[in-house]
Computed example of a mutant assay.
Amino acid sequence: MKITLIAGARPNFMKIAPIIHAIQNAQKKGKDISFRLVHTGQHFDEKMSATFFRELNIPQPDVNLECGGGSQAEQTAAIMIAFEKELLMNPVDLVLVVGDVTSTMACSIVAKKVNIKVAHVEAGIRSFDLTMPEEINRMVTDSITDYFFTTSEIANANLRKSGVSEEAIFFVGNVMIDTLLENIPRFLAPSVFSTLGLQKDNYLVMTLHRPANVDQGEKLKELILTIVNNVDGLPVLFPIHPRTAKIFSDLGIQAENLFIIDPLGYLEFNYLVANAKAVITDSGGITEETTVMGIPCITLRDNTERPETITIGTNELVGTNPLALLPVLSQLLNGKWKKGGIPEKWDGMAAERIVECLLNLQ
């Protein structure tokens, strides 16, 4: 079986890495499976892209389509045009996409248009919020996918409700957690840890990038000030997303316990998370990682496509109203955060299950 693997944006790399390693293990056992790695170039910043290939032991892509920048429509079109040429020059049996970024949807459409089957890793997750570009990407991708690899029974139920047959759904677990568990021994303290004299459980990590939180300067300012002024002076580390940095620079925020740092690589960022008192975020993937690491997580969103991180894990959804943060921060500081557990099959073996399924499809 010949497979094209698609990676385009930072979250993709963490999901692709264990699948590549599982394919390589299968090849060593004499299995008939090979892959071609296509990087769409959706994220082209060094910290958002190339670093991850090195840190996660992913081979250099066979091709980089260099489709970074532009509006949603421009980027989707650029990826589709470039990937169609790539696929026609290098035909395969299956195109495997991961997650919910623009590259996921665009490459799925192209593959189906040229009659190549599509497998979607992380299929079936839903926020039911059509203002999120990612939700549209998920829905479109799953509407044309042939093989659905899922992270939870909730995702399975979403697919069944949309008419997907049971035979096409494979509950395999979470490849993000495969990568996390594989790399915990390799986590690396960033220089800021010693520079600021940070101590375990004595600081917070914050990440913000979603339009609802960062596109309006005053809203972003109110959010940040509410956080830094209500954590008993604990240091708040803010690895700032390029999207957020442009807006933040005009806000004039002054706070002695707020530390703006550049985006970090996977190993350094997760070192900070693993040793933090809590994480405040609007990311989806981080809520999965904090759940497995047992770190309290406060999510600044009105909905989530990963409800198991709340019902089972350490995550709490508080919305985007800054005032809603106050009771949650008080709960955290008073040591009353829930303990949390780990969802089924988030055990580091998801990629092995995926490759086993793929081999059985032949």
Rank of each mutant, 00 (worst) to 15 (best):
A350P: 07
M105N: 10
I227T: 08
E135C: 09
F269Q: 03
I116H: 04
N183F: 13
H209I: 06
P327S: 06
I310D: 01
N90K: 10
V114Y: 15
I312S: 06
M206E: 11
A9K: 01
L198Q: 07
M176P: 04
V101L: 11
T40M: 07
L37P: 01
P91N: 03
L188Q: 15
L237C: 08
P59K: 04
L130G: 01
G335D: 09
I6L: 06
G68W: 14
D32M: 03
S283L: 03
G70F: 12
K336N: 15
N64P: 08
T76R: 05
K117V: 06
I354V: 13
L272Q: 01
I154P: 07
K28L: 15
E86I: 07
K339T: 15
C67G: 07
G348T: 01
L181Y: 13
A157G: 00
D302I: 13
I342Y: 12
E344F: 14
T320H: 10
L332H: 04
T195I: 12
T145K: 07
P11I: 00
G313V: 01
L196P: 04
F35E: 01
S108T: 11
T51W: 14
Q362G: 05
G284Q: 09
P296M: 04
K117I: 05
G41N: 08
N158H: 15
E316D: 07
H209R: 08
Y203D: 02
T320Q: 03
K112R: 15
K2T: 13
A245G: 05
S34H: 14
I260A: 00
K28N: 14
L5P: 05
T290I: 03
I33D: 07
E86H: 14
I312R: 06
Q199P: 00
V38Y: 02
L325T: 07
I3L: 10
P59T: 05
T145N: 02
L204S: 06
R210E: 03
T226H: 12
T244I: 06
E84A: 09
L37D: 01
V110G: 12
E166F: 10
V231D: 00
E344V: 10
I184A: 04
H43I: 00
T195S: 14
S127E: 10
